[in-house]
Computed example of a mutant assay.
Amino acid sequence: MATAAPSSPTTAPAAPAAAGSARGWGFTVLGVVRILLGFYFLWAFLDKLFGLGFSTPAERAWINGGSPTAGFLGGSIEGGNPFAGFWQFWLSLNPITNILFMAGLLGIGIALLLGIGMRIAAVSGAALYGLMYLAAFPMTTNPIIDDHVILGVLMVALAGLGAGEYLGLGKQWKALVGRKAPYLI
């Protein structure tokens, strides 16, 4: 008579972390990091839209006819970037590039703040950070790694660890759309 093999610990779903445990505390910190990153994206959107005077002066605000992408991409073209032709192409599509960039900042920011749609937000945010990393060549402080790489990897880790479920609406979002559209979790 054959007996069933014991289940592997890697196949069993992880139990939720208790709020008072070290693991629960760590996941709460991930929730805080998620919120901070969400605010970071949302602030960039608002500053570029209204020209709040931090990174974007009022006269270069998007609502005043400025381009949210022209300064950064223009600098990458003039600065000896090996991908200058690629950035020149996107600058030639400036209105489309601006809309995609601003929609990305807004969508990623809201998703991270609320803890919903973490998979799409993480992939989109990591892709945006990856493109910004490539636009920043040549690197000035480290020839390989900069904050764009670290933040992109962090965003993917936040989604993989379910950070939207801590200090966010991730659990409710998962219950609402998880079965119908798991890619939206």
Rank of each mutant, 00 (worst) to 15 (best):
M1K: 13
T3D: 15
P6H: 11
P6C: 10
S8T: 11
P9W: 06
P9A: 10
T10A: 09
A12K: 12
A12S: 11
A12H: 10
P13D: 12
P13F: 11
P13N: 12
P13V: 07
A15V: 10
A15P: 08
A15S: 13
A15T: 13
P16T: 07
A18P: 12
A18S: 14
A22Q: 12
A22N: 14
R23L: 15
G24V: 01
G26T: 12
G26N: 05
G26E: 08
F27M: 13
V29R: 06
V33Y: 07
F41N: 02
L42M: 08
W43G: 07
W43T: 06
A44C: 02
A44N: 01
L46R: 02
K48T: 11
G51C: 04
F54Q: 06
F54K: 02
S55F: 09
T56Y: 02
T56P: 04
A58W: 05
E59S: 10
E59H: 07
W62M: 05
N64R: 08
G66E: 09
G66Q: 04
S67G: 06
S67C: 06
T69G: 03
A70L: 12
A70G: 06
A70R: 12
L73G: 02
G74P: 10
G75I: 05
I77L: 14
E78K: 03
G79F: 01
G80H: 03
F83N: 00
W87A: 00
S92A: 13
P95C: 11
P95A: 09
T97N: 10
I99E: 09
L100S: 05
F101V: 11
F101Y: 15
A103G: 06
A103H: 01
A103L: 14
G104W: 14
L106Q: 07
G107E: 12
G107C: 08
G107M: 04
I108R: 00
A111H: 04
L112F: 15
L114E: 01
G117V: 07
R119D: 14
I120L: 15
I120G: 02
A122W: 07
A122T: 08
V123G: 00
V123C: 02
V123W: 11
S124D: 12
G125C: 03
A127P: 05
L128F: 13
Y129F: 15
G130I: 11
G130K: 04
G130V: 11
M132P: 01
M132K: 00
L134E: 06
L134W: 04
A135T: 05
P138S: 07
M139G: 12
M139T: 08
M139I: 03
T140F: 00
T141P: 01
N142H: 15
P143A: 07
P143T: 07
I144D: 10
I145M: 14
D147F: 01
H148A: 11
H148G: 10
H148Q: 14
H148R: 10
H148K: 09
G152P: 12
G152V: 07
L154N: 08
L158C: 04
L158F: 04
L158H: 01
L161P: 08
G162N: 13
G162I: 09
A163M: 08
A163R: 05
G164H: 04
E165Y: 01
L167K: 03
G168C: 05
L169G: 00
G170I: 07
K174F: 09
V177T: 06
R179G: 02
R179E: 06
Y183D: 11
Y183K: 01
